[in-house]
C-alpha cells in the first residue's frame, strides 16, 4: 500500500493516538537528543518499531523518515519486524564464548526450530545473540524476556524452552 494513500494517513493518525506512542512523543518532543530515546520507548512497548510509527514520528518530530531509518537500521537494539513472544538472548561475549555459549545457541536453535536472528513460525520464540550482558561470573548466560539463566549447558535448554511454552500456553499468538 503506498504510504501517501488516504487509508495509510488514517492509519498513521490512529497509531499516533495510541497511549505508548502519544506518551513517547509528549515526553521527548521538546528535548534535545531525543530520537533514539523515542525509538527505545516504542521498541520497549511493542517489541519492534512499526513502519506506521516511524512515519508518525517523522511527522510529529519533524525528523526526515530517512534519518529515523538511518538510526533504526544502524543500531542492533531496534527491530523492524515483530519478534516472537519469548525473546531468547544468548550472550556471546568473551567469557560466555570461552565457556561454550555456541553449543547453547545451537541447542536453542534446534529446540525451537529457528535460526539466530529469526522467530519461530508460530511467533512464540525469537532467538538472538547478544554481546555481553555483564554477568560474566555466571557464564554462559541467556536472558529470556528479562529473566536471566546462568551457568548454562545445552542440557538446560529443553527445560527453559518448556518453561516459556507453558508460560504462554493460555495466550495463543
Amino acid at each position: 500500500m503506498p504510504e501517501n494513500s488516504a487509508s495509510m494517513t488514517e492509519k498513521i493518525q490512529k497509531i499516533g493516538s495510541e497511549p505508548d506512542v502519544a506518551a513517547a512523543v509528549r515526553k521527548w518532543r521538546k528535548k534535545r537528543g531525543s530520537l533514539i530515546m523515542v525509538l527505545h520507548e516504542i521498541q520497549n512497548s511493542r517489541g519492534y518499531v512499526p513502519r506506521e510509527v516511524a512515519l508518525y514520528l517523522s511527522r510529529e518530530l519533524g525528523t526526515p523518515l530517512a534519518s529515523i531509518y538511518e538510526a533504526l537500521t544502524f543500531y542492533h537494539y531496534f527491530k523492524l519486524e515483530p519478534p516472537g513472544k519469548a525473546v531468547i538472548s544468548v550472550c556471546t561475549g568473551t567469557a560466555c564464548y570461552l565457556k561454550g555459549s555456541q553449543a547453547v545457541v545451537d541447542e536453542f536453535s534446534r529446540e525451537i526450530g529457528a535460526a539466530v536472528g529469526a522467530s519461530t513460525e508460530d511467533k512464540m520464540f525469537h532467538l538472538q545473540c547478544v554481546r555481553c550482558v555483564g554477568c560474566c561470573g555466571l557464564a554462559p548466560v541467556a536472558i529470556v524476556n528479562g529473566k536471566t539463566y546462568g551457568r548454562l549447558t545445552p542440557a538446560d535448554v529443553k527445560k527453559i524452552v518448556q518453561e516459556w511454552r507453558d508460560h504462554f500456553k493460555d495466550d495463543p499468538a
Partner: peptide, 22 residues
C-alpha cells in the same frame, strides 16, 4: 541518553553522533 547496541559508540565522536540521534 541510551545507547542502542553499537560498540563503535564507545568512541567519543561516534558517541556524540549517537546522542544527536544519528
Amino acid at each position: 541518553r541510551l545507547g542502542a547496541g553499537a560498540f563503535v559508540c564507545g568512541e567519543e565522536t561516534a558517541l556524540i553522533a549517537s546522542i544527536e540521534g544519528k
